[in-house]
């Protein structure tokens, strides 16, 4: 069984890689298998996890009857299949969108806005109270100025209701540069880890499957 699994794995691995050359029947076959099997897999996992473990067990074992509301909303969703009353399916949809909007409004506001502003209120010359002026190393001072100033100019870039002209435009331009450095940093940081993914697959083909490298 293991050997069959290994061969199937190798066949599919090469099928996907072949896409780099061009679209071809091998890739199409791998893609078709991927789509069919994974859609089924996800449904089964969700079914047993949500409908059985959370819903059925929740009601029968724990008596959480409020879960029935979820099932009713889910059922209303299926009314789409009945053309005449299909519009009712907008109710669960608006329920979800309302809940997500309400929840994320406060959530993002506190974690993204409040917390980040609080973190940026920091002294430029030293990182602790009680230190006198310029006792911090010059590197720290420059770094702190860049963190506070960079955040400030970055926000200027995002301003919608003012034209990026004059001094405001210059600040906004510095802001986009800071943002570009951020992007560059993330880019550079990720390149290496992506390479290691490929090495992992090569290891599977040449090591596990062909046994050429040990």
């Amino acid at each position: 069984m293991d050997a069959i699994g290994l061969w199937i794995g190798a066949f599919l691995t090469l099928g996907i890689i072949s896409f780099l050359y061009k679209d071809n029947p091998w890739y199409k076959l791998s893609e078709a298998i991927f789509v069919g099997v994974s859609a089924g897999y996800w449904f089964i996992t969700l079914f047993w996890d949500s409908i059985y473990s959370k819903f059925y067990i929740g009601i029968t074992d724990k008596g959480d009857y409020y879960l029935i509301v979820g099932a009713i909303l889910g059922f209303l969703m299926l009314l789409r299949l009945v053309p005449k009353i299909g519009w009712i399916s907008r109710w669960p949809l608006s329920f979800i969108v309302g809940a997500i909007s309400g929840f994320y409004l406060i959530n993002y506001f506190s974690s993204n806005v409040m917390r980040q502003v609080a973190n940026t209120v920091m002294p430029l010359f030293s990182t602790e109270y009680g230190q006198s002026l310029f006792t911090a190393p010059i590197g720290t001072i420059v770094a702190n100025i860049i963190v506070a100033g960079g955040t400030f100019t970055g926000l200027v870039y995002f301003f919608f209701s003012k034209e990026h002209k004059g001094a405001f435009g210059v600040t906004a331009r510095i802001g986009i540069w800071v943002i570009m450095i951020t992007f560059g940093a993330t880019f550079g940081y990720t390149v290496m880890s992506r390479m290691s993914l490929l090495i992992g697959r090569m290891d599977f083909i040449f090591g596990d499957w062909l046994g050429l490298i040990k």
């Binding site: 969700l46 979820g70 909303l73």
Partner: peptide, 10 residues
């Protein structure tokens, strides 16, 4: 939880 249940129906 409601969302998870609705998602399965969907």
């Amino acid at each position: 939880l409601y969302f998870d249940i609705i998602a399965v129906f969907a």
